[in-house]
Protein backbone atom coordinates (compact mmCIF):
# COMPACT_ATOMS: atom_id res chain seq x y z
CA UNK A 1 0.00 0.00 0.00
CA UNK A 2 1.29 3.39 -0.87
CA UNK A 3 0.06 4.69 2.48
CA UNK A 4 2.85 3.10 4.35
CA UNK A 5 5.54 4.47 2.14
CA UNK A 6 4.24 8.00 2.35
CA UNK A 7 3.06 8.12 5.87
CA UNK A 8 5.18 6.07 8.12
CA UNK A 9 8.93 6.20 8.09
CA UNK A 10 9.96 4.45 11.18
CA UNK A 11 13.52 5.61 11.47
CA UNK A 12 16.00 3.54 13.47
CA UNK A 13 16.45 4.58 17.07
CA UNK A 14 20.17 5.07 16.59
CA UNK A 15 19.56 7.69 13.95
CA UNK A 16 17.52 9.79 16.35
CA UNK A 17 20.12 9.39 19.05
CA UNK A 18 22.92 10.32 16.65
CA UNK A 19 21.11 13.46 15.48
CA UNK A 20 20.35 14.42 19.06
CA UNK A 21 23.96 14.06 20.12
CA UNK A 22 25.08 15.94 17.02
CA UNK A 23 22.88 18.84 18.07
CA UNK A 24 24.29 18.81 21.58
CA UNK A 25 27.87 18.75 20.31
CA UNK A 26 27.17 21.67 18.01
CA UNK A 27 25.69 23.59 20.92
CA UNK A 28 28.89 23.10 22.88
CA UNK A 29 30.94 24.14 19.87
CA UNK A 30 29.02 27.31 19.31
CA UNK A 31 29.34 28.36 22.94
CA UNK A 32 33.06 27.65 22.97
CA UNK A 33 33.69 29.40 19.68
CA UNK A 34 31.80 32.45 20.90
CA UNK A 35 34.37 32.94 23.61
CA UNK A 36 37.04 33.60 20.96
CA UNK A 37 37.10 36.63 18.72
CA UNK A 38 37.12 36.26 14.95
CA UNK A 39 36.10 39.83 14.29
CA UNK A 40 33.39 40.19 11.68
CA UNK A 41 33.32 36.42 11.23
CA UNK A 42 31.75 35.97 14.66
CA UNK A 43 28.23 36.46 13.42
CA UNK A 44 28.78 34.28 10.37
CA UNK A 45 30.16 31.43 12.42
CA UNK A 46 27.38 31.57 14.98
CA UNK A 47 24.72 31.69 12.27
CA UNK A 48 26.43 28.97 10.25
CA UNK A 49 26.31 26.59 13.20
CA UNK A 50 22.70 27.52 13.89
CA UNK A 51 21.80 26.78 10.28
CA UNK A 52 23.43 23.35 10.48
CA UNK A 53 21.55 22.58 13.65
CA UNK A 54 18.28 23.78 12.19
CA UNK A 55 18.84 21.65 9.11
CA UNK A 56 19.39 18.58 11.26
CA UNK A 57 16.18 19.20 13.16
CA UNK A 58 14.17 19.82 10.01
CA UNK A 59 15.59 16.91 8.03
CA UNK A 60 15.46 14.19 10.66
CA UNK A 61 13.20 15.18 13.53
CA UNK A 62 10.67 16.74 11.19
CA UNK A 63 11.19 14.03 8.56
CA UNK A 64 11.63 16.45 5.69
CA UNK A 65 14.31 14.23 4.21
CA UNK A 66 11.90 11.33 3.87
CA UNK A 67 8.55 12.98 3.30
CA UNK A 68 6.87 14.19 0.18
CA UNK A 69 8.96 17.04 -1.23
CA UNK A 70 6.04 19.44 -1.08
CA UNK A 71 6.61 19.93 2.64
CA UNK A 72 10.20 20.86 1.94
CA UNK A 73 8.90 23.37 -0.59
CA UNK A 74 6.51 24.92 1.91
CA UNK A 75 9.22 25.25 4.49
CA UNK A 76 11.84 26.68 2.17
CA UNK A 77 9.19 29.01 0.80
CA UNK A 78 8.69 30.51 4.22
CA UNK A 79 12.43 31.10 4.56
CA UNK A 80 12.68 32.58 1.08
CA UNK A 81 10.00 35.18 1.72
CA UNK A 82 11.39 35.97 5.13
CA UNK A 83 14.73 36.57 3.41
CA UNK A 84 13.10 38.91 0.90
CA UNK A 85 11.50 40.83 3.74
CA UNK A 86 14.70 41.37 5.68
CA UNK A 87 17.05 41.95 2.76
CA UNK A 88 14.82 44.39 0.88
CA UNK A 89 14.17 46.34 4.05
CA UNK A 90 17.91 46.56 4.53
CA UNK A 91 18.34 48.04 1.06
CA UNK A 92 16.76 50.98 2.77
CA UNK A 93 17.97 50.92 6.34
CA UNK A 94 21.65 50.36 5.53
CA UNK A 95 21.86 52.97 2.79
CA UNK A 96 19.99 55.98 4.08
CA UNK A 97 21.41 59.29 2.93
CA UNK A 98 23.65 57.87 0.20
CA UNK A 99 23.18 60.63 -2.30
CA UNK A 100 22.35 63.64 -0.25
CA UNK A 101 24.91 64.04 2.47
CA UNK A 102 22.62 66.17 4.54
CA UNK A 103 23.13 66.47 8.22
CA UNK A 104 19.59 66.25 9.40
CA UNK A 105 18.40 67.48 12.74
CA UNK A 106 16.14 65.24 14.77
CA UNK A 107 12.79 66.92 14.77
CA UNK A 108 12.14 65.90 18.30
CA UNK A 109 15.06 66.98 20.41
CA UNK A 110 14.30 64.45 23.08
CA UNK A 111 14.06 61.70 20.47
CA UNK A 112 17.23 60.01 21.54
CA UNK A 113 16.92 58.74 25.00
CA UNK A 114 19.69 57.08 26.96
CA UNK A 115 22.35 58.33 24.57
CA UNK A 116 25.69 58.18 26.27
CA UNK A 117 28.29 60.69 25.17
CA UNK A 118 31.17 58.24 25.24
CA UNK A 119 29.74 55.83 22.70
CA UNK A 120 28.94 58.05 19.78
CA UNK A 121 32.47 57.64 18.45
CA UNK A 122 32.61 53.89 18.35
CA UNK A 123 30.07 53.21 15.65
CA UNK A 124 31.52 51.69 12.54
CA UNK A 125 28.98 51.74 9.72
CA UNK A 126 28.36 55.04 7.93
CA UNK A 127 24.62 54.52 8.11
CA UNK A 128 24.86 54.06 11.82
CA UNK A 129 25.82 57.68 12.33
CA UNK A 130 22.72 59.09 10.82
CA UNK A 131 20.46 56.53 12.27
CA UNK A 132 21.47 56.65 15.89
CA UNK A 133 18.54 58.91 15.99
CA UNK A 134 16.34 57.15 13.58
CA UNK A 135 14.14 60.18 13.47
CA UNK A 136 16.63 62.37 11.69
CA UNK A 137 16.50 60.25 8.57
CA UNK A 138 12.84 60.99 8.23
CA UNK A 139 13.54 64.53 7.28
CA UNK A 140 16.57 63.83 5.14
CA UNK A 141 14.89 63.47 1.80
CA UNK A 142 12.82 66.58 1.60
Amino acid sequence: MKDDAAQRHILPLNLYLAVGSGLLVLTVITVVVAQMDFGPMNLLIAMGIAVIKATLVAMFFMHLKYDNKIYMLVFSGSLLFLGVFIIFTMFDTLRRGDIYEEIAEPYLKEAVIYRKAETTTALSHPAADTSNTASDTVTSDH
Partner: peptide
Protein backbone atom coordinates in the same frame (compact mmCIF):
# COMPACT_ATOMS: atom_id res chain seq x y z
CA UNK B 1 1.44 25.78 6.14
CA UNK B 2 0.66 26.74 9.71
CA UNK B 3 4.37 26.45 10.49
CA UNK B 4 5.06 28.68 7.50
CA UNK B 5 2.82 31.36 8.98
CA UNK B 6 4.66 30.95 12.27
CA UNK B 7 7.99 31.50 10.56
CA UNK B 8 6.74 34.72 9.02
CA UNK B 9 5.17 35.84 12.28
CA UNK B 10 8.50 35.48 14.04
CA UNK B 11 10.04 36.89 10.89
CA UNK B 12 8.81 40.38 11.68
CA UNK B 13 10.67 40.22 14.96
CA UNK B 14 13.80 38.85 13.34
CA UNK B 15 13.66 41.76 10.90
CA UNK B 16 13.29 44.18 13.82
CA UNK B 17 16.30 42.58 15.47
CA UNK B 18 18.44 42.58 12.34
CA UNK B 19 17.85 46.22 11.55
CA UNK B 20 18.48 47.60 14.99
CA UNK B 21 21.52 45.43 15.46
CA UNK B 22 22.93 46.64 12.14
CA UNK B 23 22.32 50.21 13.26
CA UNK B 24 23.71 49.81 16.75
CA UNK B 25 26.21 46.95 16.76
CA UNK B 26 28.10 48.25 19.78
Amino acid sequence: IFLLTEVLLFGGLFCFYAIYRSWNPD
